[in-house]
Simulated scan of single mutants.
Amino acid sequence: MTEADIPTRLSQLRRWAADQHGLDAHALELRLAAGDASFRRYYRLRLPDGATRMLMDAPPEQEDSRPFVAIAGRWRAGGLPVPALHAVDLEAGFLELDDLGDTPLQRCFHGDDHPATLAWHDRAIDLLHALQNRASPDALPPYDAALLGRELDLFPDWCLGEWLGIAAPPGWEALREALIASALAQPVVTVHRDFDAMNLMVRDDALYLIDFQDAVAGPLSYDLISLIRGRYCRFTAPRFAAWVEAFRQRAVAEGRLSSGTDLATFLTQAQAMAAQRALKVLGIFCRLTLRDDREGYLARLPHFLGHLEESLAALPEHRDVHDWLRDHFHPALEAKLAAQGIAGGSLA
């Protein structure tokens, strides 16, 4: 869908929503609420009685909404906090959902070390435990070696090749295979796949899950890493380790992780998972910029580079790549950001 298509899609969405409620399309109160990194757009519908709903416009030629609908039904039946679906037209690509408001979790953060920020992360981790306990991964596509590999390849393909014009480091293939093996060694659970603060909505002091259409059956630590190595905070190594250990203990107690998995093993797996995700995000953000003409993503690269450096520092067998980041990637990225005049581009 191009920008030129948006007015036509909006007109169609307006008529569809009016039909659902027996209202005059011209009198319908409909306002753009949000867009995201995909082709989906969200509009807030205000009904005559003052109630509001969220309308999702997901062009079917670019967005398959069937996984979202199926997962929403299963997770809601399992008692998980997801928006209810009030109307669905998969052929048109229109959905009417609960309106969860305008407060994604990151708006509740007040600095990395603020007690409120830490408390909200604790609550989000509690929700993650509920997700893994209540949502079976059986009906989800596998987060297998092929998918993990495709995600990792986004880094050399898009970040290094297409954007920076440099080659992958000499130790890349060894790192790639090690990160895949580490992920596959973990227990398989339901993985939201983007369990970041922006996909956790706060309404009436409760957390709700959104944007779960890409959920897979995959590694136990993946969603935890998405949260505590996300895009909004940088936590200290002791804080990171404490969350990983608390998560490990609860996963063992609830039967999702073998009691034979000690802290050192699980912490290493978590660091490897964090490296995998950081590499994927660095590639995705460059692809969103270069292929999809999205703005604002390049300025976020230094944040995830920091995550990547922290993870690789904890994996001494990959010190060659860690050193390459410092000696080659770091200066190349900083120079490229500075040359493009991108705010926030300093890596100092």
Rank of each mutant, 00 (worst) to 15 (best):
L184D: 10
I225T: 09
G283F: 01
S182H: 02
L263S: 14
S182L: 00
L315R: 05
G296L: 10
R239V: 14
R287T: 03
W243E: 11
A275Q: 00
S311N: 06
T190S: 15
R229H: 10
L220Y: 08
T265W: 06
A185D: 12
A183V: 02
A241L: 15
F304C: 00
L301V: 06
R277L: 00
R277A: 01
L279G: 03
D293Y: 12
G218L: 11
E317T: 15
F285C: 02
F285S: 01
D214W: 02
A181V: 11
L200A: 08
S258F: 09
L200R: 09
M273Q: 04
D204Y: 09
R294W: 03
L301Q: 04
R203P: 04
V191F: 04
A274T: 05
D205P: 07
L263M: 09
M273F: 03
L209S: 07
R256G: 10
L315A: 03
A264W: 04
A270W: 06
V216W: 03
L301Y: 02
C233H: 08
G283W: 01
F195H: 04
D293N: 13
Q276H: 14
L312P: 06
L227I: 12
L257P: 08
E310P: 00
A246C: 09
A299L: 02
D262F: 00
S259R: 14
R248G: 10
D204E: 15
Q186A: 01
S259K: 12
A278M: 00
L209P: 09
V244M: 11
W243M: 11
D293K: 13
D293V: 09
Q276Y: 01
T190F: 04
A246Q: 13
Y297E: 02
L290Y: 02
D262P: 08
Y222N: 12
T289A: 05
